[in-house]
Design a protein around this nucleic acid. Sequence first.
DNA 1: CTAAGTGCAAATCTTTTGCAACTTA
DNA 2: TAAGTTGCAAAAGATTTGCACTTAG
Lengths: 144, 144
Amino acid sequence: MQDSIEYKLKAEGYKITAQSKTIIKAFAKAKNHLLSAEKVYEWINEHEKSIDLSTIYRNIEIMMNIGVLKKISLDNHADQYKLSVTNEHHHHIVCVSCGRSEIFKDCPVAHIEKTLINKTGFTPIEHKLEILGYCQSCTRKSRD
Amino acid sequence: MQDSIEYKLKAEGYKITAQSKTIIKAFAKAKNHLLSAEKVYEWINEHEKSIDLSTIYRNIEIMMNIGVLKKISLDNHADQYKLSVTNEHHHHIVCVSCGRSEIFKDCPVAHIEKTLINKTGFTPIEHKLEILGYCQSCTRKSRD
DNA sequence: CTAAGTGCAAATCTTTTGCAACTTA
DNA sequence: TAAGTTGCAAAAGATTTGCACTTAG
């Protein structure tokens, strides 16, 4: 996973540095949890040799460009990111309690595009969909 | 429309001021076009007695609280807002070219909640959906 | 009269940028 | 060695806040 990202970076003409490796590692360790730039910074401060925030932002941008990182903006937060190696169109459902997120690929928006064109006259080109909820373990906890 | 918003503000214990009236007017004039706080500020500067940006932000917050204004965050922009007096669940499709927006009420997310629970174990509680596209007149223009 | 709203200036938070020094390929 | 990357400091953009003054009810 980390390797395939490095490979893709190289393929796109970027250089691999100790910093970019560490940043990829931070996201890989976070698994399904969303991370803000600040959170990446904190994690690295605790576990690795410190990296400047601006470097983290610059690497995030690169990783978004090559399509291995996806940005998720929720209200009242800094933008958050997670690794996303698949090319398939998908969305995320995010746990409001613990920040875990899960991919779902059955995009419901595709089904309504025709209706949308008919009803509004708009021609849709893209969409942003984020679903918030409780993940399995947080649902369980809230029942206790 | 403006009146019903003032009524609602009063009902919730807020005072009506010259400033709040002007801000409501700005949104009313904009009709379906999204406005950022800055845009509201500019419009008022051009057409009415100037109001401080912080006052605009404070009024926007109040109007969101009482549910007459909806926030729409798109990437690389300041947050944008539009009046939304209906209580009915709905989403917006926004024209990337001119900023016009239209409501659509057939929310496709409702249909997939059960699938979502089954497949991800998450219990959804809310969602954010924004569709971007070209409105009718911008679609026409781009064909020319 | 008094609680709420306002303008102003300053602060905050997130993200971006310029630049000289440093690394990777 | 050339081009890309980094750290640092500073800037930028959006939004929020403290406070003394004003105003609506």
